[in-house]
Nucleic acid binder design. Structure first.
Lengths: 243, 243
DNA sequence: AAATCATTATATGTCCGACAAATAACACAT
DNA sequence: ATGTGTTATTTGTCGGACATATAATGATTT
């Protein structure tokens, strides 16, 4: 705890202290459950005022990395992977590019889950999905209501049994909804056309693939289901000429 | 029944202020570039001391949501989606379950990217990948060195043109490395066996699929390439009996 | 002696006032 | 009009004070 002292005053002290603390935890192999020195001692060791230290601690507390109890001191805890992200996924705050990236992220993730879905799928899941499909509300041109979309896809995520993936999708879902709404001039005609041509992959189609155990069919179905998103992203990002 | 006890009797003021600020930004449709009131005004309006307000602001500053310049006041800025996550992805800090979830997340994402990869792939990408494969260092039993693994897969991510996905993979990569190392007793024999049986999908194999434009082959190849991870995760998570 | 209750000491939560540092805005000189 | 210096304002940092909760200790009761 002696080699923590701050010298450089370029970046704000709080930023540096935050860094130092993380480094301190790492270097000392501290993990969830381990106690850390009290505020006054840390401030002293870092050579900063208590307010600066507290701002840094506050940041780490937000991420769930630190838990504090009055009089009992501070403990490290397992941080929440996505708590930071959760606060800022807000269409108003993010650039179009980021929103498109998030949409692409979601599509890739959901398609990539197929393998896991087939690995974990059981009867209960099928029943639940059947129920969702049965209750599902369809607007014109085979378009689902947001709630129906939400239920079906959330269930698919659930089948993976991966709570991190589930948490992630719950956080970024508003982005898909937002984009679909904002660019409905693009999506509606496409859906209309696909629907007329009978090429639209419905939730029921996907469920049938699952029931038959048709992995490849399911994956192709998912890709088609997301087809409008793919073409949308391609259109919005026409010149990907990095490097 | 002892750990039901409520310890944190009150949500701290800082937590509440953080929430209020986010709500304020949202309700007023504020976005990147918009100025926000100065500290003293905010503290006054919120009815809290400046230090409490500053702790909350510090959290948002960490996420990149707020930029401040002395005397010029504070501006909203586009936050970084993953900056919060970046700080806490540290194997020592995360439970095994979370680490496994992250690995599964990565595998799903990387497989799901296939479609995007084929959409964006150009000659330059192929050349780069060929170069990486050519220079690649292989240890015994066809196992790649971490650097080679890193270069190849990073390049694949790059082809997607999705900077959010790229940033994400860069952050969580240490987890794969860590798990592979920690559970080498599991992975090494499997790789050895696959290698002997000639069933191991190499980077070169994957590249060949890309060159031939064989989308399905590439996807199957990726799944096989990640086969050991799949079986590992299945073993580590044998009873997924939620709901 | 064991259990219960009251007191004390201590760590975090919050407030406040002060000053430093940076710089936008203004005033002034050429 | 341009350049220069001064002033005012805003964030960054410090330190002290008190509130609150509670672990530790000691006192009281049975």
């Amino acid at each position: 705890m002696n080699d923590l002292r701050i010298v450089n005053h370029q970046v704000t002290l709080v930023d540096q202290v935050e860094d130092r603390l993380l480094g301190y935890f790492k270097d000392n192999n501290l993990g969830p459950g381990d106690p850390i020195p009290k505020e006054l001692e840390l401030a002293e060791a870092l050579g900063v005022g208590r307010s600066v230290l507290r701002e840094a601690l506050s940041r780490l507390r937000m991420l769930g990395l630190i838990e504090t109890r009055t009089r009992r001191g501070m403990l490290l805890a397992e941080p929440s992977l996505l708590r930071g992200m959760k606060r800022i996924v807000e269409p108003n705050m993010l650039s179009d590019k980021t929103l498109f990236n998030i949409l692409g992220f979601r599509v890739a993730l959901e398609i990539g889950m197929s393998e896991m879905i087939f690995q974990n799928l059981n009867k209960k899941h099928i029943e639940d999905l059947e129920d969702i499909v049965k209750r599902g509300v369809v607007k014109k041109f085979s378009e689902y209501t947001p709630v129906t979309e939400y239920e079906f896809h959330t269930k698919l995520y659930e089948v993976t049994g991966n709570s991190t993936i589930m948490e992630f999708q719950a956080i970024i879902r508003p982005v898909s909804v937002f984009l679909k709404e904002r660019f409905q001039d693009y999506f509606l005609p496409i859906n209309k056309e696909l629907s007329k041509a009978g090429k639209l992959v419905s939730h029921k189609d996907l469920l049938d693939f699952l029931k038959k155990g048709d992995k490849e069919g399911f994956r192709r179905g998912m890709i088609d289901h997301f087809g409008p998103y793919y073409s949308f992203l391609k259109r919005e990002n026409p010149f990907e000429k990095k490097n």
